[in-house]
Write a protein that binds this DNA or RNA. Sequence first.
DNA 1: TTTTAAAATGTGTACGCACACACTTAATTT
DNA 2: AAATTAAGTGTGTGCGTACACATTTTAAAA
Lengths: 355, 355
Amino acid sequence: MDIGKNIRIKDIAKLAGVSVGTVDRVLHNRGRVSDEALKKVTAVMDQIDYKPNLIARTLGSNKNYKIAALIPDPTGDPYWAQTNLGIIQAQAEWAQYGVIVDTYTFDIFNKDAFRGLAEEVLESAPDGIVIAPIFYHESLPAFELFQNQSIPYVLFNTNIPEAQPLGFIGQNLNQSGRVGAELINLGQHESGTFAVLHIDEDVHDSIHLLEKEKGFREYFQEHRKHKFEIVDFILNPNEPTFKNQLIELLADDTLKGIFVSTSKGTAVAASFLEKYGKKDIRLIGYDLLEENLKYLRSGIIDFLINQNPKRQALLGISHLVNHLMFKKSAPALELFPLEVITQQNVDSYLGSGIH
Amino acid sequence: MDIGKNIRIKDIAKLAGVSVGTVDRVLHNRGRVSDEALKKVTAVMDQIDYKPNLIARTLGSNKNYKIAALIPDPTGDPYWAQTNLGIIQAQAEWAQYGVIVDTYTFDIFNKDAFRGLAEEVLESAPDGIVIAPIFYHESLPAFELFQNQSIPYVLFNTNIPEAQPLGFIGQNLNQSGRVGAELINLGQHESGTFAVLHIDEDVHDSIHLLEKEKGFREYFQEHRKHKFEIVDFILNPNEPTFKNQLIELLADDTLKGIFVSTSKGTAVAASFLEKYGKKDIRLIGYDLLEENLKYLRSGIIDFLINQNPKRQALLGISHLVNHLMFKKSAPALELFPLEVITQQNVDSYLGSGIH
DNA sequence: TTTTAAAATGTGTACGCACACACTTAATTT
DNA sequence: AAATTAAGTGTGTGCGTACACATTTTAAAA
């Protein structure tokens, strides 16, 4: 291995017996180059392993990139607040590289407002967009707009197969449900009932939640050691019937475990288990939200599956910057590991700067 | 927020009414600067938020950094092979920035050879060192050598409190044992026996393994719901008595679970459980080694705690590069999350490029 | 006061790449 | 054959920082 200096364009030029300008034209195939010169340069290129100095390249173009982040309003919403933290961290991390991240938030109950927002974003002419497209139908026209203006965009949190983004960052929801099933099933030696709860103020992403339930049920079909009954509920905590529905569920003495498909719903379910002294019912939910941590530490919640909303946002922006600034491509599909959080390992996650 | 161009040294100079050279001297406090000039520059610095352009800075210094990685010989050792993979990945990742990583391997049974290696490494005059210091006593003089030559070094895998490295990358072993205890205890409703096995060809890091056991036992002292007996063994698979010791252990009908403190030992224990049809005994071990994955998928192993040797090495080198090249400091203590791996989430870990 | 040293400050260049522009040579047109 | 256009090629500059070196200013010594 030759340890010395890296090969520069200048070196290629010298080896090929042409000027740096010609090499530059060959490398980026711009301008015109004679067949003869082209041959000489490509001959050298085949011989050596030229790796452009990304630092120098970036310094030269030295643009100030503007990135737009579209997420649901994080105010009073612990899940999207985590996402927002990821955006803020990305902002701080990339600020010194001249990257500016503008966050645009929308009301998760107001689909119409979302339509207008996409246009508002475009007016600011961003160089790239990261978006958590929780509205399926309303997102499609937005993507078309982005595509027309050829603005690269990255999806996270919710995947939309019809879109053609730079990449998607999230988790395999079906497999996530299977993990939930596996954890709820562990060490259960008697038959009984498991409940799947979709607790959400809104139903916009119920499709995604149902994907988790599908995985959950599939697991038990493949591992039918004991006879388990699985019941499922789609609950809205704002409905007056909500409380009674849960109480009725808890009254079932055969209930062995509860799998909550939403992060916010997890704490709600936990509060009921605590209130009615049902500590022995295994509870599995999502995400390291403050409330959830409290119940995890007190033993009400047994497992949390970490969706890592913060890092999803952080990585989404990093992908975009790598694409824009360093012309580095990232995998189109970045599926995060399905992290299992328990009382004993939760601190190791909270302490780790990466997560 | 002012979106325009970032503030450059040139701008500070103009605002302070001095030259860029003076600003440079103030920023890096080199050379002499008059009180008056110092005051003018610091006054401007207080006003504005100057963030040096790391790209330009790096381009200028444009050195070829040489990093030495000291690890146990990965040949025929799946754990250190993972570590080696991390080094190779780091190599590829940083190659275009002019970073060269030289790997020095040593025999885990030959402490004397290790002493010589440290000197050999120093002869190559590396700019930084990453090291997995599995020999406690033999490492100390090596660190002193590094310190004397003021070569920055990063520890990973094994922490040595007496050392003064740039940072340590690893896990909290006590807490790791607690996680093992928690997982082995989950859903166990009858009293019985748990075994802690330290299966290792060598005893050099038994101190560290015992730290895991300590955490394991502490967990049960704090959560004494049922009456559990905990037995522990330090076993060498090369000893002739090894097989019988394990068979004897498995003959105990009250045995509910086994916690293996080493990654290689995990597969060994699994093979015994499989051979003697003791599938119901809960088995918890370490790391995503090929062998372990096989037993995890077949259900012999119930949980693996991921120590992520690959990423430990990768991150160790990244820390060093950030320090050398970008003058960015990293946390002195990077404790990885204690990742719980199960049959259902293992693929999400293997598929993820980050892990 | 002049000389000499020290302190303070300014100027210039390299780092590697991208891109603008000027220049040379060859091919057409007038 | 001269003038014009096009094709091909080389030169030069900026990006922001770091650092070497030249230059100016100030203080101390002769």
